[in-house]
């Protein structure tokens, strides 16, 4: 069953044609990695999926909900689709627990006590039960990103968007974040990951989408795609990524 359907999506930044007709379905419980060079439109596509960016043509559906960038829709979207960012974007004046509790309290209207329990549970899940009352400034990058994951999970999303979530991390901290994401994937949460971690895309994603110049250039089962790229562009991209590793 498809959890999200994207149809003929077109997006312009002024004269710049960023997305040139994207068709993509995300199935329930599936994890999809979007790869491609900088400027290929992969982050833009991801940001369209929860209405952070607008688009000019085509449509995106999540269940019965049409995803648009209309501010009034943001609350409804937030109940179904979570997002994690490259720069974590934790709220610096709130502790880890308060970061996690904020939206359940304000958006879902859960009582304070319940939010605290929920925060405990979510931080425990990402291995930070001991760091509840730390401010972001007292946490490592990897820990901050895991708090951000806990914060997103506290809204009980059905789908989670990850926008290059390990790109701002020191190499030795990447593993702890990817482990958490891997666990979420195995639990059946639908994931869409924009990533530069090729090994991660191969091992965790069910399906990989390769974007090139605003289009989906190639897609397929992760292992298949990396082993037998069908287009010269993907082959080149993979070999470049390997050289960089």
């Amino acid at each position: 069953m498809n959890i999200m359907t994207i149809c003929s999506l077109q997006k312009y930044y002024g004269d710049n044609h960023v997305l040139k007709g994207i068709d993509l379905n995300i199935r329930q419980g599936e994890s999809v990695a979007i790869i491609g060079q900088s400027g290929s439109g992969k982050s833009t596509l991801l940001r369209c999926m929860n209405g952070l960016e607008d688009y000019q043509e085509g449509w995106i559906r999540f269940g019965n909900m049409l995803i648009t960038s209309d501010e009034k829709k943001a609350r409804e979207i937030s109940r179904s689709i979570g997002m994690i960012f490259q720069q974590f974007n934790l709220f610096p004046h709130l502790t880890a627990a308060e970061n996690v509790m904020l939206a359940p309290r304000l958006v879902l209207g859960l009582p304070e006590k319940e939010c605290r329990t929920l925060a405990e549970e979510m931080l425990e899940k990402v291995g930070l039960g001991e760091r509840m009352d730390y401010y972001p400034s007292g946490l490592s990058g990897g820990q901050q990103q895991r708090v951000a994951i806990a914060r997103a999970l506290a809204m009980k999303p059905r789908m989670l968007l990850c926008d290059e979530i390990t790109s701002a991390l020191d190499p030795e901290l990447v593993g702890e974040v990817l482990k958490v994401v891997e666990q979420l994937a195995s639990e059946g949460l639908s994931l869409v990951l924009v990533t530069h971690e090729m090994a991660f895309a191969r091992d965790v994603a069910n399906r990989v989408v390769f974007m090139h110049k605003g289009k989906i250039h190639e897609e397929g089962p992760a292992k298949e795609l990396f082993r037998h790229p069908q287009t010269a562009e993907l082959e080149q991209f993979i070999s470049r990524a390997r050289a960089g590793l």
Binding site: N50, E71, A74, R75, F85, N89, V107, M155
Partner: peptide, 15 residues
């Protein structure tokens, strides 16, 4: 930072 606004928005907070 723009990211603070975006984080608030994707969590469903009103303006």
């Amino acid at each position: 930072p723009k990211g603070q606004w975006e984080a608030a928005r994707v969590l469903g907070l009103s303006k």
